[in-house]
């Protein structure tokens, strides 16, 4: 590896640590949760508002829409919790609200279908490489 600047060295060290973690720790189970790969928990505001966090199942949506529809046309960033979605925007027809309007998919009064996570579950992409390799924040002080 050609090292160009100190940042690269640090990144190299991180990589080595990660590679070691993959070899030693392996893709071990992280607690009891064994939800679907790519299920996204979004808990930007839910806990504070007394709602269950949202769980977005990628698998369910990718059977019905290609990635492009949400990630290019609707402007969803490739980052869990990175879109600052709130109910005002959804009711206004942005983000989830582009389809969840009672027209293409069921509408916002079905709170419990999206807000279905265990309270206190942090924002995450379930089963992601990062989640498996890094130490997770404790769920609402529990565990």
């Amino acid at each position: 590896m050609r090292i160009r600047h100190p940042g690269a060295l640090w990144r190299g060290a991180q990589a080595a640590a990660l590679a070691a973690a993959v070899c030693i720790g392996g893709f071990g189970t992280s607690g009891e949760a064994r939800a679907e790969y790519a299920d996204v928990v979004i808990n930007n505001y839910s806990d504070a508002a007394g709602m269950r966090p949202v769980i977005f199942p990628h698998w369910f949506h990718r059977i019905r829409f290609r990635c492009k529809v949400c990630h290019a046309d609707l402007g969803f960033q490739f980052k869990a919790g990175g879109n600052e979605i709130n109910m005002v925007k959804i009711i206004d027809g942005q983000f989830c609200g582009a389809c969840h309007n009672g027209d293409i998919a069921w509408s916002v009064e079905n709170c419990n279908l999206c807000h279905s996570g265990k309270p206190g579950t942090p924002t995450q992409v379930h089963e992601s490489t990062i989640q498996k390799l890094a130490i997770q924040p404790q769920a609402g002080g529990q565990q």
Binding site: R34, A35, D39, N112, K118, P119
Partner: peptide, 16 residues
């Protein structure tokens, strides 16, 4: 049963 959905939530049981 997946560990992140809340089984006490009735909506959870309606999901595919």
């Amino acid at each position: 049963e997946d560990g992140i959905h809340d089984p006490d939530n009735d909506g959870t049981h309606a999901l595919q």
